Simulated assay, not measured.
Amino acid sequence: MFGKFFSNKSSPKVPDSGQITANSSASDLTATEKIQVITETLKDYRSESFPQGILSVSSHFHIHTIPKQSKAITVELILPFPCQGELDDIAKSLVDSLKQPVEFGVQLNVKAVRSFSLGGSENNIKNIIAVASGKGGVGKSTTTVNLAYALIAEGAKVGILDADIYGPSIPTLLGLKNAKPSSADGKLMDPLTAHGLSAMSIGFLVDENDATVWRGPMASGAFNQLLTETAWPELDYLLIDMPPGTGDIQLTLAQKVPVAAAVIVTTPQDLALIDAAKGIAMFDKVKVPVLGIIENMSYHLCDNCGHKSHIFGESGGSQMSKSKQTQLLGQLPLDMNIRQDADFGQSDIIENSTGDIAHLYRRIARNIVGQLFLQLDNASPLTPTVEIID
């Protein structure tokens, strides 16, 4: 169908070093005592992604021989989801406690929570996460792109698929307007890349000024080809930017695509929340777990005085997450920088990786993949143990 378009990672609580040696300073701790501090810290640390501590989900834990005071202590971990930002915060707290640099060497072992086949790409994509909204205009596509960049910053291999056949915006958001995919074998399209993010969109194949006038089955078929006829590289997560709404196309996509879980983007506005509830209901009908809700445009922070204004309402996402028995994954501000970056195909996560906006997206991204593991993976410490009694 598309052959003619081819162009040849919360602040951790660190045990007081005085608990180890009551009469010694941190600089006087022995190697064994430092190992104990690090081990206890990782055991006792609690967050939404680590409700039972970091070591409860790590399949490998090793502290290299403690070097001299001037060199960093290296802690090796194998983890089932990316969380580099959270580990960086823990490392900073350990530095304050041990008076010695601490570094985490993390190897990711992300596994598929749902088995599926996608033709030639069947072994390359581990988990597909749908990012959806009940209505348009809530910033879903912008949020999807920034979450993808955030996951890359956390250490994951990520791709993005634009399922909005009628109004594809991913090419603009990635700064890839007018770019066209090529094909190495004449059968599968090679995804385009932006800052390490692999992407495919109908917007790469048709002119942005041409209206895509397709009936539902044609649109669904086109999307299915975008998914299965793309030569995806090895990906830990493929984010699907779903079209807004809960009509026939959205339902068909949710049923045909092997989605592991979904995330709902909404604003605090009552009208948006009503439609977001419909989105949750749609995924419930097709048996796709909803990991939680992202409240976008949650508030506006005044540049001059720092006053927080809830322009579209307050606590709507929080209340809905409770009523639907899901999680509030995070709240994002109404910020001019996010809008400007979107218009110019940029991202604050790349341009200002240490800024507040980047930290917000990275925290939400960690919450999403953490909950994907905790709620759906058989290796999760939260998975109930089934005991059979004769």
Rank of each mutant, 00 (worst) to 15 (best):
F223N: 06
S182Y: 14
I160N: 01
P168D: 11
E208K: 15
L174W: 15
G216E: 15
R215P: 00
L192P: 05
T193P: 03
T142K: 00
P181T: 08
A156C: 03
G186K: 07
I160P: 05
M200Q: 09
S220T: 13
T212L: 12
W214A: 03
T172V: 13
A150C: 03
T212A: 10
N178T: 11
S141N: 13
L197D: 04
L176I: 01
A219E: 12
G136R: 12
D164A: 01
V158K: 07
A219M: 12
M218P: 13
D185L: 02
A150M: 04
S141T: 12
G221W: 13
G186R: 04
F223L: 09
E229I: 06
M218Y: 11
K177H: 06
I170W: 10
F204T: 01
A184D: 10
G216K: 06
E208I: 06
N209K: 14
L188I: 01
E229V: 06
D190K: 11
D164C: 01
A148R: 05
E208Y: 12
S182L: 06
W214E: 07
A222R: 08
A211C: 12
T142M: 00
F223W: 05
S182H: 14
I165G: 08
H195T: 12
T143C: 07
T142V: 04
S183Y: 15
T144A: 10
L174F: 13
T230L: 10
L161V: 12
L188G: 02
G221E: 10
N178V: 07
G175I: 09
D190A: 11
P191H: 02
A211G: 11
Y149M: 02
L192I: 08
A156D: 07
N224P: 05
D164P: 01
V158Q: 04
L151P: 02
F223P: 00
A150G: 03
E154S: 11
L197W: 10
T228R: 11
K157V: 01
I152H: 00
S183L: 09
L147V: 12
F223D: 06
A211T: 15
I202A: 08
L174Q: 14
A153G: 03
D190P: 05
A184E: 14
A219N: 13
T143P: 05
L192R: 08
G175S: 09
T142E: 04
A222F: 09
L173E: 12
D210L: 09
I165K: 14
S183M: 10
A184T: 10
M200N: 08
D164H: 05
I202S: 08
A150Q: 08
V138M: 08
